[in-house]
Design a protein around this nucleic acid. Structure first.
Lengths: 131, 131
DNA sequence: AATAGTGGTAACCAAAAAGTAACTAATGGC
DNA sequence: GCCATTAGTTACTTTTTGGTTACCACTATT
């Protein structure tokens, strides 16, 4: 009975937070979207090891929890843009601190500014979006 | 091939943090230990929905990642005390912010100060530690 | 006429996580 | 002698997660 969400009968806010973003992909997705809205395919390209199915699922959950806005355009081929809501924007500084913490606590790991984050800053959508 | 940890080829510190504490139990465990060291059975009692097997496993991982100190006393019956390392103590303010964020972002949930956290403050080990 | 392009979905399968129950060691208490 | 106690461990089973592949709609391009 592997349960995804912790029971939260006492309405603990930390438990709630971890239920919402406490998995491996979601903070990454939020971080990627911190520079602006992005299409599904772009997210998929920037997180090479995620499968479409899982990405779809994560995006849906984030949308349901009010962290993402999904805008679907009636074009062919389809275009869907994801962007952060105010809730999610409020979370970004905390994500930054989580990142800073690892830098301090594990200096031997010699972290770089996350490539995944850098990528998004270049307009090189076509360079990145392959296959 | 469900993999627990995200690949982190580019040594991104946020990815690393989420690999270390980005699951449902670990922040809870760390928070519980923020008031001082605690025995295995106490942790097990304060997190009623976790199984012994999983708790053991989570504690081991936290120890391996340098967040917990495990002290085993050569007594019968056995006694093992878990406490936070400096690394983990540095993480506590961030956990607090994660908690605060949920309070702000989801006011409709009417969170209380987490019961799980309150419990630990009473010396009522024997009241809590049942079955 | 075939293909590429996008954002998915459905079906199927493998792997991992997590639950349960039983078991352990060594001692103190009844 | 028997039971309770603690911090696990082991074996077994179920549930969940995640990967893969194929497929769709519709248009523009080759």
């Amino acid at each position: 009975m592997a349960r995804k969400y912790i029971d939260n009968p006492n309405a603990c806010s930390l438990v709630h937070t971890m239920n919402i973003i406490g998995n491996k992909w979601k903070p990454i997705i939020l971080y990627l979207l911190s520079n602006g809205s992005m299409r599904f395919g772009m997210l998929n390209a920037l997180i090479p090891t995620i499968s479409k199915k899982v990405l779809t699922n994560q995006l849906k959950e984030l949308e349901n929890d009010g962290l993402l806005l999904r805008q679907s355009f009636a074009e062919i081929p389809p275009r869907v843009e994801y962007s952060l809501t105010e809730k999610a924007i409020g979370l970004l500084p905390v994500l930054r601190q989580l990142s800073d913490w690892a830098n301090d606590a594990y200096p031997e790991m010699e972290f770089e500014q996350c490539r995944i984050i850098e990528n998004i800053k270049k307009p090189a959508y076509n360079n990145v979006y392959k296959k």
